[in-house]
């Protein structure tokens, strides 16, 4: 067996306070080399704040953080040289073309022109933007802009690629193209740090993730580990009509391991959803609609916080 991968990022009691609220509340986590590490949580959970602290563009209030053994507040430029940053909102250079964006970004890192020119060809292919090379970025679609932002972040050959909500606002097809590219990077051994409020994204991309809510870590594990610990194998979703849902909840609760009553539907947790549906119908309860599905991180989040991820 190989020796365990070295730890690239280690945070202890990491806290960010603003005048009127605590954005990040004493969190501990560590990321090993080659990990694909996710921060899952709703808006305002403290994910982006944590990312900015790691990216050496935000000072912490207390606690400690080391990135490749260095403190970001003391060695900002050195740490940023290891990172590729894909911000939540694209900040591509609107005045420049696709290649010019890649070129100037490489120059900001001080890279030699020859190195950058060769790298640009590689990245244009990776981002499938060869045909757009001389196009101004404002003419690109949302998906293309995202891919260019990722390509730009890769110009310095970073060890850690940080993606803040990488697919928010993209259509399904553009999301899948992006996921495919991120998989490739993962295969190449790039450490990925991803924030997302999409469960499917976290399940697709992350080996390990922390579930965050209101600045704190609620749980940490692999996606499947989280589901195993905090949910059942399957979920039966039933609707009895919005006024009746609450009335039948008591009866349903007796049939399964756990239920969640949402405004529009009831989630029933158990090992076998079909069987659950069968027993329910036998006991004389006829839902308007029913759906059996596997448990997801959404269920984990609901269990941990009592709230849905996307509200």
């Amino acid at each position: 067996m190989n020796s365990p991968a070295p730890i690239l990022i280690r945070a202890t009691g990491l806290t960010k306070k603003y005048e009127d609220f605590v954005a990040v509340n004493g969190i501990d986590f560590s990321v090993a080399k080659g990990d694909s590490f996710g921060f899952l949580g709703p808006n305002g959970a403290g994910k982006s704040t944590t990312m900015r602290i790691i990216a050496a563009t935000l000072n912490r209030s207390s606690g400690s953080i080391e990135i490749l053994g260095k403190d970001p507040e003391l060695h900002g430029p050195q740490i940023r040289a290891h990172l590729g940053v894909v911000p939540q909102q694209d900040n591509l250079d609107q005045a420049l073309t696709v290649t010019e964006n890649l070129y100037v970004y490489g120059r900001y890192f001080g890279l030699p022109k020859k190195f950058i020119r060769a790298k640009i060809e590689e990245l244009l292919e990776f981002a499938a933007l060869e045909e757009k090379r001389d196009v101004k970025v404002e003419a690109l679609s949302g998906g293309m802009k995202r891919r260019l932002t990722i390509a730009r972040a890769l110009i310095s050959e970073p060890e850690i690629l940080m993606l803040d909500e990488p697919t928010t606002g993209l259509d399904p097809q553009a999301r899948h193209i992006l996921w495919d590219r991120l998989f490739r990077l993962k295969e190449q051994g790039v450490t990925l740090l991803i924030t997302t409020h999409y469960m499917d994204e976290a399940e697709q991309l992350c080996d390990r993730l922390i579930v965050m809510d209101k600045g704190s870590i609620m749980a940490e594990d692999s996606p499947s580990g989280l589901i195993k610990t905090y949910s059942t194998k399957e979920v039966l979703e039933v609707r009895f009509g919005s006024d009746k849902n609450a009335l039948v909840a008591g009866e349903l609760e007796a049939l399964c391991e756990r239920i969640e009553v949402l405004p529009d539907r009831i989630l029933m947790y158990g090992e076998d959803g079909e069987h659950l549906l069968h027993t329910m119908k036998e006991s004389g309860l006829q839902p308007l609609t029913s759906l059996v599905r596997r448990s997801s991180l959404e269920d984990v989040f609901l269990r941990l916080t009592g709230r849905s991820l996307i509200e």
């Binding site: 430029p77 050195q78 001080g110 050959e157 970073p158 060890e159």
Partner: peptide, 16 residues
């Protein structure tokens, strides 16, 4: 990487 080597070369310089 080249980017890291360039950044590390400035360690210890004034105002780094």
């Amino acid at each position: 990487s080249a980017a890291v080597a360039i950044a590390d070369a400035r360690i210890g310089k004034y105002g780094e």
